[in-house]
Nucleic acid binder design. Structure first.
Lengths: 315, 315
DNA sequence: GTCGATCGTTGACGGTGGCAATGAGATCGT
DNA sequence: ACGATCTCATTGCCACCGTCAACGATCGAC
């Protein structure tokens, strides 16, 4: 714990205090938004269940419990209560005798519509008390928090490798600059190098011989790689990166694989790359992809002491 | 209500939806931070009471009830429970026979210290899973929400102009590429141009004669501008941009202003810039800042038909 | 001294939610 | 086919959360 405290940035305590202060003060504010429920016949948890059911039209208790993090026992009683009130119906699943399919009745959908309208009205009132600029700031801040704390990439997530879209060459520079500064303390000279590589690629490249890929997980970019021309018969793999949040899913290997395949089809006989000793997981990927270490030499081009490595493999 | 709906900005529904989505998704996230309590002997409400008492050292039930919005009856029982557990002591107030002064015992302060440490640890863990920039944005967004919804009259938004941090030169490229593609359909050649400008700036610049600024609102970058050398006596303003979500706050004017001041101090006699006719709000900013249109010529460098404009002003 | 307001307490009640036990059904290895 | 194991739903039990109403004690104002 002491170790963690000492090597952390100096403002760590301030940040923790800010998050805790937010938790304490936002709870009552959220209470205000709950008050629309008081006029209705339903409690907060019931309303949450109704809301969830309205979104997915058909479900079962286990799924609802997972989604809303409710205890199975509590949920069972709650569903029984809602069924008695006529808001939903339950029947045994024909496919799985353990499950009981839960569905909103017409009355349940009416209840949902009412809850939805009241909630919309209440939030609307809250926003109406704010100026235009404040509303925008509030929504922007909430979206930011949701994006940052939002659900980590789900297990069955959809991974796509595709060409960069507008702005994503910039994303490559940004993530290289931010991540290597965070993780290894590299300075702005590294970001400058990446910007140069990306600018050269963007300015002018033969799409048959040079290409870039973005790895997209659940719609968000989480990785990238470039394949560029070193000389007529040699390709160069550059700017391989995978977001920390998306690591250990084989995304790096997929990107390298794609790059090798492209280089082969583009007619190169050999592919090379330059990396640094501290990037251990990258090293494992290159070894697994058949690259071999050619040479290594120490440098301080990005601040800390590093050992640059050239790797290569025949295609 | 109809009137409110019709004369409201078109994105009213979106904003309401965003706030509601935040409420739904933030609740579970906050639940995670509550889990430190599970290891302790106290429940959430007990912990809140202990926390509040630790802040003010001496209080009474009525005050606690107001601060934490707790029912008097419930609070009475809760305080009795905490007293039985030895965490606090109650005695009649000498000044007011109705009141009973509540104070933490030594054991209660120990309990507070433990809760405080656990909470700090849990929040610290949450933050540790995020990158440096994400941490800053999270804290900035939370502070913004607190400021907007908080009881105190809202302090002015936290707008800062500052030098780019790691990754933010990449951010400049990304936002130019994405925004102008979205708004005007410009193609990848524009992003390539921006990447080139940024790469040249990053590679080598005399900090006395060239500079870049990021406009930061609530911890998140929302705008930028560069001041670079055109020739010995001429500066060039480049890559002015303000995020749509942050427009109409004078941020663009602030950035241009900062740029002019820097150029003057750097010894330039003149400043120029190049822009395009479709960027109307930028044009207003340049006019207000004393720039004058020098010439204009049509081009299709980025896809659609555009009219490029050179502007200049003496310093 | 009376009146109204405030403070704390108590009883009643129902929602919230964790935990353990149970039985029915599904799944899988043998 | 069989049993071990898992999942799903239910039930009982329990403690906490939180509202409501009634009540007595006290205070301040008149």
């Amino acid at each position: 714990m002491c170790a963690a405290a000492t090597d952390a940035p100096p403002s760590r305590r301030d940040r923790i205090a800010a998050v805790r202060a937010f938790n304490r003060t936002y709870t009552p504010a959220m209470g205000l938004l709950r008050e629309g429920l008081l006029e209705s016949a339903y409690t907060l948890t019931e309303a949450r269940v109704i809301f969830e059911l309205a979104q997915r039209d058909e479900s079962d208790a286990a799924e609802l419990g997972r989604l809303l993090r409710l205890d199975a026992g509590y949920l069972s009683r709650l569903l029984a209560r809602l069924e008695a009130a006529g808001a939903l119906e339950r029947e045994r699943s024909p496919h799985d005798g353990r499950r009981r399919v839960v569905r909103l009745t017409a009355a349940g959908r009416d209840a949902y519509a009412l809850l939805d309208e009241r909630s919309t009205r209440d939030v609307g009132r809250l926003l109406a008390g704010l100026g235009e600029a404040e509303q925008r700031r509030l929504v922007g801040a909430m979206d930011a928090i949701r994006a940052i704390l939002g659900p980590e990439p789900t297990a069955g997530a959809a991974l796509v490798l595709r060409a960069p879209r507008p702005g994503e060459l910039g994303w490559i520079v940004e993530r290289h600059g931010a991540l290597y500064a965070d993780e290894f303390g590299w300075d702005e000279r590294f970001e400058a190098l990446v910007a140069r590589v990306v600018a050269d690629f963007a300015a002018d490249h033969d799409p048959r011989r040079e290409a870039a890929w973005i790895a997209e997980l659940d719609g968000a970019p989480v990785g990238c790689v470039l394949c560029v021309r070193a000389d007529e018969r040699t390709a160069k793999l550059r700017l391989l990166l995978v977001e920390p949040s998306a690591r250990d899913r084989g995304i790096g290997a997929r990107l390298v694989d794609e790059c090798l395949r492209f280089a082969r089809r583009a007619g190169y006989a050999r592919i090379v790359l330059w990396t640094n000793d501290v990037l251990r997981s990258a090293r494992r990927i290159y070894e697994a992809a058949g690259f071999e270490l050619v040479d290594a030499s120490p440098h301080r081009d990005f601040g800390p002491e590093l050992v640059g490595q050239h790797w290569a493999r025949e295609l």
